[in-house]
Nucleic acid binder design. Structure first.
Lengths: 146, 146
DNA sequence: TCACATCCCATTGACGCCCATAGGGTCCCA
DNA sequence: TGGGACCCTATGGGCGTCAATGGGATGTGA
């Protein structure tokens, strides 16, 4: 198994660090992920975190198209310009940089959200709101299809 | 590894210098890049910076096309006529010349943006805007295809 | 000779590496 | 089955190093 599942909220300490939940850390270890590729999600105000393979998947997508096209240029702007490598400290914490704060609105608490093959960093209220909205939309979709 | 990744904004000092982020400097070192080749991006109001191999790649691209075509001609005009060589000082800073300022609109701060095999210099707000727009376009494209 | 670029050195604030502690849960054994 | 030892997670903080920045001094070309 070892998917990224469920969510948890941890607080940021005075130095701007936050502990990654143990469950996520062990999932990272099982996937042999040492260096974290983090990028600004395309849809939500959240940072997605995964291994280098995540980045490589995007890069394949780019090189499949014409690498000199404006489209590829824009895509690279997002995944390269909007992405960082990070690594955890010895205690399994990561620095919440301005790169993360500015994009997510995170200030003193982080909600970690499992997304199967990666996980995300959310501002707690933003996650609640997005989840509620997703539930509503599914309800509507259910009514339509059933 | 050792790609140019992420973005960071640094201040230009009174002498017109700006520090290249340490991550980018170490990437340059790993690629054995001493002399920086800089040219104006084809799509965005940004200066692209890389090694000579970057220039050579464009030259291959040109010679792959018909060398006498308008396209190859225009491309040569940009990469040869619009390119300069620069080098960093001992502290890893570069001079922000008028060549850079005029094309990007940079005045007192520079946003460095990683683009995998090279990086770019942006005026901070222009980068924010371009990234936001690229994300919007991706969102729309996603909705269409799903 | 003056403007500007380059070389060198100083400062400070941020970040990485290390160790410490509390609280909660678990396991073991009497 | 209750108590206690133990472990592990989350969190706090000290300290050294290095990056980012500022500025003086020296070199060089117009």
């Amino acid at each position: 198994m070892s998917r990224f599942l469920s969510h948890a909220t941890n607080r940021i300490d005075s130095k701007g660090r936050v502990s990654v939940p143990a469950a996520f850390r062990s999932a990272l270890a099982q996937h042999n992920i040492q260096e974290l590729y983090c990028f600004q999600d395309f849809v939500f105000p959240a940072i997605s975190v995964g291994g280098v393979d995540l980045l490589e998947r995007f890069e394949r997508q780019i090189s499949a198209a014409d690498p000199f096209s404006p489209d590829a240029n824009a895509m690279s702007l997002l995944i390269h310009g909007g992405g960082v490598f990070m690594k955890l400290d010895a205690e399994g914490r990561l620095m919440v940089t301005d790169f993360i704060r500015d994009f997510t609105g995170i200030s003193d608490e982080v909600t970690f959200v499992g997304r199967s093959d990666h996980f995300q960093l959310w501002q707690p209220q933003a996650f609640q709101a997005a989840q509620t909205q997703a539930r509503e939309e599914r309800k509507l979709a259910g009514k339509r299809s059933t």
